[in-house]
Nucleic acid binder design. Structure first.
Length: 189
DNA sequence: CATGGGATTGACT
DNA sequence: GTCAATCCCATGC
C-alpha cells in the first residue's frame, strides 16, 4: 500500500488494514487482527516522545516498525499518520494464504490455525526480524497489498487491546468476523 | 553504568 | 490457571 494510505488517522488505518495481505519470506497471509497505537495514549511506545527507539514511529508513514517484545519475539507494526506524529498499527494475526509449508517449518507446528494467530507467531512464520525496522511496506522486503476481492466487504468487530497495562479501556483492537486465526476471541463489540 | 519493565509464547500445574 | 525465557532500551543515579 502507498504511503498516502498510512498517512491518515491511525484508527482508520488499523480498520482498513484488516483484509489486506502481508507478504514476506515466501509466505503471505490476510490480516485478520490489528491494534492502533498513538502518541497521545500511554500504551504507545511513542508516548515517551522522540527517542532512539521511537524514531521509527515518528518517521514517514508506510514503513515497518519492528521491535523485540519480552526479549523473545519480533512484533510488526505499520507506521501511520503524517511524519512527526508517533503512531502505528500492530499486526496481531494473519490467516495463512501462501507458503503454508514454510510457515509450518519455521513455527515447528502443523495446524494452520496456529501458524500466525499472534503477533510473535506471524513474524516467526514469515521470517520477519528486527532488521526490517524502517523498511518500506510498499516496495518490500515486507509487502502489504490491498484486500483480495473475497475480503473486500469483510465485517469488523472492535475490542480492547491485548496485553497492555495502560490505556486498557480504549477499543482500539480490530478483528475480522468469521476467521479462526485470531490471537484471542473478541470479548466486546 | 545499573536497573526494570514489557504491544508474548509455550510449557507446565 | 501460573510462570520463565531473554533482550532492547528508557530512565535514573
Amino acid at each position: 500500500m502507498r504511503p498516502a494510505f498510512y498517512s491518515r488517522p491511525v484508527l482508520e488505518v488499523a480498520r482498513d488494514l484488516v483484509g489486506c495481505v502481508v507478504s514476506h519470506g515466501g509466505c503471505s497471509g490476510v490480516v485478520v487482527e490489528t491494534e492502533a497505537y498513538h502518541q497521545s495514549e500511554a500504551a504507545c511506545h511513542a508516548y515517551v516522545g522522540l527517542t532512539k527507539r521511537t524514531s521509527t514511529l515518528f518517521g514517514p508513514p508506510g514503513r515497518a516498525y519492528v521491535y523485540r517484545s519480552y526479549g523473545v519475539h519480533a512484533l510488526l507494526n505499520a507506521v501511520s499518520e503524517p511524519a512527526g506524529v508517533g503512531a502505528g498499527v500492530l499486526i496481531r494475526a494473519l490467516e495463512p494464504v501462501e507458503g503454508v509449508e514454510l510457515m509450518r517449518a519455521r513455527r515447528g507446528l502443523e495446524p494452520v490455525r496456529q501458524l500466525c494467530s499472534g503477533p510473535g507467531k506471524l513474524t516467526q512464520a514469515l521470517a520477519i526480524e528486527l532488521d526490517h525496522n524502517q523498511t518500506d511496506l510498499e516496495h518490500g522486503p515486507i509487502v502489504v497489498s490491498p484486500r483480495p476481492s473475497a475480503w473486500r466487504e469483510v465485517q469488523i468487530q472492535t475490542d480492547t487491546r491485548i496485553g497492555i497495562t495502560r490505556a486498557i479501556e480504549l477499543p482500539w483492537r480490530f478483528c475480522a468476523v468469521g476467521t479462526r486465526c485470531l490471537s484471542r476471541a473478541v470479548r466486546r463489540s
